[in-house]
Simulated assay, not measured.
Amino acid sequence: MRRVFTKAAGLAAVGLLAFATAQPAQAHTLTHQPGHADTSAAYFVMTDITREEFIVKLTKPGDIEHARELVSGETTDRPHLFTRILKRQAPYNPRWSYHNNPDSTEFFDHAFEVCDATIPYVEDNLDEAGGAFLPGLVWCDWTSRLVREVPAP
């Protein structure tokens, strides 16, 4: 019974992410803030229980603001990242063979087990991602947390 529930919950999570990312894109407003040259994209170091570091790119203004609040300690609400991965290296994250899709990235407190995996586990099993492992390429590392913002590459 637990297995059926886990699969159903995983499919529901994938469906929710698909619905959320299918909404019309909002225009990104360029605003200038002290210390931040351009808020149309921001880059953050994410770590997890393994202490490995992974660079994430964020493009939605609300996500960028929330990430900066997490890094500064202004909030502890929704500290983890939920995203679809893209199975290719990104110039801003050269250590890993995958990266986050900034258009699908969200923050969460709790998520379904089917999308939980650590940074190196995703790398080690990337060829299986999108099937039974990380269905729909949805990744939600339960121990993920942002530790600092880094300059754009």
Rank of each mutant, 00 (worst) to 15 (best):
Gly15Ser: 12
Ile64His: 00
Leu126Asp: 06
His28Val: 14
Phe107Glu: 05
Leu58Tyr: 04
Leu58Glu: 04
Glu52Pro: 00
Thr21Met: 12
Phe5Ile: 14
Arg95Phe: 06
Val138Gly: 01
Met46Phe: 06
Ala25Asn: 09
Pro153Ala: 02
Val138Met: 03
Asn93Tyr: 02
Val45Gly: 03
Gly131Trp: 10
Ala27Thr: 12
Asp48Glu: 08
Phe108Gln: 03
Pro94Gly: 08
His66Pro: 06
Lys7Pro: 00
Phe44Glu: 02
Thr21Gly: 01
Pro61Met: 11
Asp38Pro: 03
Val4Ala: 10
Ala25Ile: 10
Asn100Asp: 09
Leu30Ala: 12
Leu11Ala: 02
His36Val: 15
Ile49Trp: 03
Pro79Glu: 08
Arg51Cys: 11
Arg51Met: 13
Leu137Gln: 10
Pro34His: 13
Gly136Pro: 01
Asp63Pro: 00
Gln33Tyr: 07
Ala25Tyr: 08
Pro91Cys: 05
Asp48Lys: 04
Ile49Met: 05
Met1Tyr: 07
Leu81Lys: 02
Thr47Tyr: 00
Thr21Lys: 13
Leu11Asn: 08
Pro91Trp: 07
Gly136Ser: 04
Glu74Met: 11
Asp109Leu: 11
Pro61Arg: 14
Thr59Pro: 01
Arg2Leu: 13
Pro24Asp: 12
Glu113Trp: 12
His32Phe: 10
His28Cys: 07
Ala42Glu: 09
Pro153Tyr: 01
Ala129His: 05
Ala9Phe: 10
Ser104Asp: 04
Tyr121Leu: 11
Asp38Ile: 01
Arg68Asp: 13
Ala117Lys: 07
Arg51Asn: 14
Pro61Val: 10
Glu65Lys: 15
Gly35Val: 03
His32Asn: 04
Leu137Tyr: 12
Ser40Trp: 04
Glu53Gly: 02
Val150Trp: 04
Phe82Glu: 03
Ser97Val: 01
Ile49Lys: 10
Leu134Glu: 04
Ala22Ile: 07
Asp38Gln: 06
Ala152His: 13
Leu126Ile: 15
Thr31Met: 12
His110Tyr: 14
Leu146Gly: 01
Ala8Ser: 10
Phe54Ser: 00
Pro61Cys: 05
Thr50Arg: 08
Arg88His: 08
His99Cys: 03
Thr75Tyr: 03
Arg51Asp: 15
Trp139Asn: 00
Arg68Trp: 10
Asp127Thr: 14
Leu70Pro: 04
Trp139Glu: 00
Ser40Phe: 07
Ile64Asn: 00
His80Asn: 13
His28Gly: 06
His80Arg: 15
Asp127Ser: 14
Glu53Lys: 11
Asn125Trp: 12
Phe108Met: 07
Val45Cys: 06
Gly35Asp: 06
Ile64Phe: 02
Glu69Leu: 15
